[in-house]
Write a protein that binds this DNA or RNA. Structure first.
Length: 461
DNA sequence: AAACAGACCAACCGCAACTAT
DNA sequence: GATAGTTGCGGTTGGTCTGTT
């Protein structure tokens, strides 16, 4: 895989040095020979384009060694290197600077990229900041290549837990604007069950043999459920009335997110996921080309619904909608319904990802919901602590400062595959949608099979 | 062996933010 | 505050490699 950077064509360093001195313009059209004389009069040097030679690299490295990074436009002046500052900076950051990690992405890195993309969208530089030794360009190339491939193959972009995380995030947006009563025991238990199921799925998929599940989905589920209204919203979208809404602007934007066809995976422009930085108009617009809508599911024939919709819950009754935002405690019966709904959701999730439900395992083992964890590795005897750990390791997301450290990549110990092809994704919204009915459709795009497909992307062309 | 397609990668471009004057 | 220069970022392009037919 590794090609000599800057030397795509095999030639000796001497030849390249000579070329570096002679060659003007890789593309030719911008520095036509007949222009050289004029340009020499107007400008002392004609900047070179195209692949870097080893001689140029050496000059740049030497310059940085002497003067440090930055002030890239001075490189040409100080070294005689016929490259613009921009090109120098790019060459340095992407290829010459020390501690660059070359080679295929490890499975941990691949999963992390998926998580980060789910969190950040096409914020390659941000993502690179969490992947030591990797460059934004590298990550971008990696992601785009695999996205394209998976789109062709009709496979999901994200691993199941990441997709569900997106769904939970979506629901959480509403919960943020509602009072947050204590999580009922039933709801908390259901959330724990979801976590257990996801843990099992992740273990089965080879994600967690060396580290916890990448996303603390259960905690986010619990967060989404901290409002009674949020439970309903999680199970089915609430009515929406943003334009005239008295809610703060961010919410109006979020609300629009659910109504309109959307261009960003998790919409970096939405406050809960943007991690505090804005989106340039151009970039945001461009995202629609590169990364069509992912998670929040605009109603449309070719949109993949998120788990909440895949679970096939009926729309909330009017009373539930009426309760939204009110913050009033619901009767116990209602709480039980919520817990039951979550249980049902869990069941369907299990079905979707084809793992045993904690309940089933409990039945088999005579134990509780934690049996899944014990069964799949036994490293989770203290679920509570584990949840906290997961939360600490979780990518900063809802209301979290962007400086929250990410989980350090553990030693790859997954399927044994180190191929960079092992993970790939596709914007779920562009995947052939599951049958409009919900849970039963998830086998294709959400199911455990898709996890395997994720892990074996190299075979899909 | 040759042709082709897809994957991969490096580098460019344009835009926006930031900084100095 | 306005302007110019610099830096950083994201999207795109084009060349090379690799696998398949």
């Amino acid at each position: 895989m590794e090609r000599s950077p800057g030397a795509p064509l095999a030639s000796s360093p001497e030849e390249e040095e000579e070329k570096a001195a002679v060659e003007f313009g890789h593309h030719g059209e911008e520095e036509a020979p007949e222009q050289d004389q004029q340009q020499e009069e107007a400008a002392p040097a004609v900047l070179k384009k195209g692949p870097w030679t080893t001689a140029e690299d050496a000059m740049l490295v030497d310059h940085v060694r002497r003067h440090g990074e930055g002030n890239w436009n001075a490189v040409q002046r100080l070294t005689g290197l016929l490259r613009c500052g921009k090109s120098c900076r790019l060459r340095w950051t992407n290829h010459l600077r020390p501690n660059l990690k070359k080679g295929s992405f490890s499975p941990d890195e691949e999963l992390l990229i998926a998580q980060l993309h789910a969190q950040l969208g096409n914020k390659w530089a941000r993502m690179a900041a969490h992947l030591p030794g990797r460059t934004d360009n590298e990550i971008k190339n990696y992601w785009n290549t695999r996205t394209k491939r998976r789109q062709r193959a009709g496979l999901p972009v994200y691993p199941p837990e990441v997709q569900l995380h997106l769904a939970l995030t979506k629901r959480r947006r509403y919960a943020e604007f509602s009072p947050a009563p204590e999580l009922s025991p039933g709801t908390a238990a259901a959330a724990a069950n979801v976590q257990a199921a996801l843990n099992a799925a992740a273990v089965s998929a080879g994600y967690t043999s060396s580290r916890p599940a990448p996303l603390d989905l259960a905690r986010q589920l619990a967060a989404a459920a901290t409002s009674q209204a949020a439970v309903h919203q999680f199970l089915s979208p609430p009515p929406f009335s943003a334009p005239s809404s008295p809610w703060p602007k961010p919410f109006a934007r979020n609300a629009q997110y659910f109504q309109l066809a959307h261009s960003s995976p998790v919409s970096p422009s939405t406050p809960d996921l943007s991690l505090g930085y804005g989106v340039r108009g151009g970039a945001a617009a461009d995202q629609s080309r590169l990364a069509p809508p992912l998670s929040p599911s605009p109603p449309g024939p070719n949109r993949v619904e998120l788990p909440s919709n895949q679970f096939g819950q009926a729309p909330p009754p009017a009373s539930a909608a009426a309760g939204f935002g009110g913050g009033a405690a619901l009767p116990d019966q209602h709480q039980h319904q919520n817990a039951a709904s979550l249980d049902k959701m869990l069941q369907e999730l299990h079905e979707a990802i084809k793992v045993e439900t904690p309940a089933a395992l409990a039945q088999a083992n005579g134990g509780g919901g934690g049996a899944v964890l014990e069964r799949h590795g036994g490293a989770r005897d203290n679920k509570s602590d584990d949840m906290d750990t997961l939360f600490d390791l979780m990518i900063p997301t809802l209301n979290a400062p962007e400086t929250v450290p990410l989980a350090p990549a553990a030693a790859p110990n997954h399927s044994g595959s180190t191929s960079q092809h092992s993970s790939d994704d596709q914007d779920p919204s562009t995947v052939d949608p599951p049958a409009a009915g919900g849970a039963s459709s998830s086998g294709q795009d959400w199911g455990f099979d898709s996890v395997c497909q994720w892990s074996n992307m190299s075979r899909i062309c």
